[in-house]
Design a protein around this nucleic acid. Structure first.
Lengths: 241, 241
DNA sequence: AAAGGTAAAGTCATCAGATCACCTTGTCAA
DNA sequence: TTGACAAGGTGATCTGATGACTTTACCTTT
């Protein structure tokens, strides 16, 4: 029935190697940040040529499993085993429609996350969020830092939900949204309002008021969405139909 | 302030090439399935060595932008520009906790998608869903086909929502869940019930009954979640903390 | 003329060896 | 102690060549 006598399901060598390197990382207990054996050594050990091994490493690098530092070595990535990764080779800026879709998708995800966080957030989680808000408040005039910090705040909430998938989802979506967030902030000068809303969300979390936290998160995101809709964006033509 | 005189922000050549190839695809109007110039030709044209170009292609392949067929050529992928891609080098099976997190994350996403689908689904969308359900019903005894078809049904709903991000999210999450879905189906023999629930959801969509569709989708997913919680899974140790 | 198999050309897969660029570290001098 | 420098390790990239796989065109056979 199915393709029986296929050529032993010949997976490409680099793909196979990527699996093996991944297995090696797990088996030998390499931790994030650790340096792996040099490419030359690994190539010899696996009995393959260096260029082939490089392809395997390129794949792992694309998936965030490893980080390659020229002249230094190959290191285990911070999150060596993510469920999914953002596309790092996106063509041009996302269209306005994509941005709206993005923010609309964040609403259900982040409201769910904040609800769980209201229940599960530890004292440490809350402290970390507070630290982020403090940092944001101290950098209301530095858009780079502010933007990164705000993003980290949203991600911290998702992390506190205790749900790995929601956490990773928030992380990826926020990252995709990041660049454009800057533009929006620039245009609408919503720095103070955003910050105030963040504070409100954290307050609700501290009070363990799930419904309030959800409502404030929803309002917050809807605000961004409204700003986005007003904006006469000149995003590149949508490359992802 | 920031690192001013960095070495011109030297991006690696393969990464740079990946961008350029992507740009080439867009600029020259290559459509999904089209064959790109041969590796040798592209290498010459870009003025780089073949192994280097291969690394670039490996990256694009990992991100789903292109598909490489041995002895045939390099082709543009079906979805050349996804916002994110599932990790194709996951270490071992996901833990039970990850699976529960996965299904819990699907609830807000797919209920939101089905709500939008109730409003926006076209006649064609509904027909496509019906076709999938027909195919599922005809294959209740073939778990491979059944599973793939059910997954396609969920994805079809998300597609009909009109929201690209929700669509891609559903797609990726369903794919991550797919392998384990089989185990669950096997254990709980929920083939008929699942199918009936799918039919119910489609009925609600046809009736444009948003609330009902949402409720049925929620019930459906909660059922899977409940089954999962009952299951004494022996998933591999969680590799994604 | 049609059908089938075969051979050739094109393309990806992989290797080997070498050179250059970059980072790290240890040494030596001030 | 401090600073500069020099050497070794490591990744980055190129060239050139060989093998494997696909596709296609041709040629033989019926």
């Amino acid at each position: 029935m199915s393709d029986a006598l296929s050529p032993v399901l010949r997976q490409s060598l680099p793909d196979d190697l990527a699996q093996r390197i991944k297995a090696l990382i797990e088996a030998d207990g390499y931790a994030p940040g650790d340096r792996l054996p040099s490419i030359a050594v690994m190539a010899r050990r696996f009995g393959v040529g260096a260029p082939t091994l490089r392809e395997a490493i390129k794949k792992l690098e694309t998936l965030g499993a490893v980080v390659v530092k020229h002249g230094s070595g190959v290191y285990v990535g911070e999150r060596p085993n993510p469920l999914f990764v953002p596309n790092s080779v996106l063509a041009g800026a996302p269209s306005k429609k994509t941005l709206v879709d993005l923010i609309e998708a964040r609403v259900p995800i982040e409201t769910t996350a904040v609800a769980l966080a209201a229940r599960h957030a530890s004292a440490d989680d809350l402290a970390a969020m507070q630290a982020l808000l403090d940092r944001a408040e101290a950098n209301l005039d530095d858009d780079d830092v502010l933007n990164a910090t705000n993003m980290a705040f949203h991600t911290a909430i998702a992390a506190a939900s205790g749900n790995t998938v929601l956490h990773q989802l928030s992380d990826v979506l926020a990252r995709l949204f990041q660049d454009e967030q800057r533009v929006i902030i620039d245009i609408f000068g919503s720095r103070e309002r955003d910050h105030a809303e963040h504070v409100g969300i954290l307050d609700a979390l501290r009070a363990r008021d799930e419904a309030l936290a959800v409502e404030r998160m929803r309002t917050h995101l809807e605000g961004v969405r409204a700003a986005l809709l007003q904006w006469d964006g000149d995003g590149a033509p949508d490359g992802t139909p």
